[in-house]
Design a binder for these strands. Structure first.
Lengths: 215, 215
DNA sequence: CTAAAAATGGGTATAAATACCCATTTTCAG
DNA sequence: CTGAAAATGGGTATTTATACCCATTTTTAG
């Protein structure tokens, strides 16, 4: 049976070590490269492409999502598996949208990681059972009937959202932006509608969860 | 030179593997145990105590803070080093308050981890340089003149905070908890004072940043 | 046990946010 | 150019949150 070539991208030395150690004793796999950041990964891929790429989401230079998008376009034959600590539904969705075929938590056991690699190598998708449930529940509870009318915020809305999150009242925001308080109220209302919440507290919580506002 | 006995508590197989692999080639250290959760750690300590304990903060059963508190009281001779992904200033503070002598990120290099162990074994404290800066800056920018009147929230306050973050008004919270709306107002006011913000939006943003509320 | 902190509850007032109605101007893509 | 979306602004009313004042009871730690 042909060996499966694997490459790792992770800026955590311990994770790299753990994976190196793991693959050393598994004849089925052949660890061909370990990168610490996105730049060296992209450079290395020009020389040699693995069958499977284990990709950390949090890297010092590029975001995992961007990398996945680039690689899945440039090297469509490489199977990408996101390997991360983040069990957030929105990260999972965005990574799959960005072109990964697998999503595994770093808390996963060796067996799960191997299963993910085998599945993705065989052309299937892989997502841990408990994460599948998470995604399912999230999809059922939020999306539901309306097909997300406007998931994206306009520039002004983002701007106002960020100012709301940073201890400013509508009046202060209006004065800062040289606008009427009514206009800010209008943006606030749109934000509440778009994120489907009924007050500022939930708006901020949801915006942070979705990555729309920063803390 | 006497070897340093080390024990690990971490529910990530990869981290455990990485550390095992690392200590295998270092004569100075003797890895005597690896635990997956707090319960088995506490059980194992009854049999044998390491010189240094590498403690993950996020464990399935106990919180790292609780564990650190228990162990530093029951076994004051054990040097505890928190090993975590969390570079949050408040976690760092609370872990040191709970009795750890070192705090190392999982992104740390092998050298840093070894340095931390040596320092703590020698009775010193260890904190990475960049984390030291973080703590310093946080102390300078927020604390300032008042010596942190109440950094910790009470149970009720946490409960109310969580409910505020999840789309509930004071009235609804009061009805749910069978309390007067006034009481909820009082808790909200205390939350605003403790986190030093002036409205709900900033309260939620800051609470999430500090890890006091979940999304 | 005793003192401190936490949790409970109230009155009153103002400020802010939210919910509806409405409109005009600007910007941008087709 | 032209139409759609975005951004701007207004009126009015209600609800909610915040800011002060005050108190009692319960829980917790020393």
């Amino acid at each position: 049976m042909k060996k499966i070539d694997i490459a790792i991208v992770d800026d955590h030395p311990l994770i790299q070590k753990g994976l190196h150690d793991m693959f050393r004793y598994l004849d089925r796999f052949n660890l061909i490269a370990g990168y610490n950041d996105g730049a060296s990964l992209l450079e290395g891929l020009k020389q040699r492409q693995p069958h499977i790429l284990l990709l950390d989401i949090h890297l010092p230079d590029h975001s995992g999502e961007t990398l996945a998008r680039i690689i899945s376009k440039s090297y469509p034959s490489i199977g990408i598996i996101a390997l991360t600590n983040l069990d957030n539904v929105y990260y999972i969705r965005s990574m799959f949208k960005a072109g990964v075929q697998g999503y595994v938590l770093k808390t996963a056991s060796e067996e799960v990681i191997i299963e993910a690699i085998e599945k993705v190598y065989a052309g299937e998708q892989f997502l841990e059972a408990k994460l599948k449930e998470l995604v399912l529940q999230a999809t059922l509870s939020e999306g539901g009937n309306q097909r997300q009318p406007h998931l994206l915020l306009t520039k002004r809305e983002q701007e106002v959202l960020q100012m709301i999150a940073s201890n400013m009242t509508s009046k202060e925001i209006a004065e800062t932006l040289f606008l009427s308080k009514r206009t800010i109220d209008h943006h606030r209302n749109n934000l509440l509608l778009k994120l489907d919440v009924k007050n500022t507290a939930a708006l901020i919580a949801k915006a942070i969860k979705l990555g729309l506002a920063h803390t």
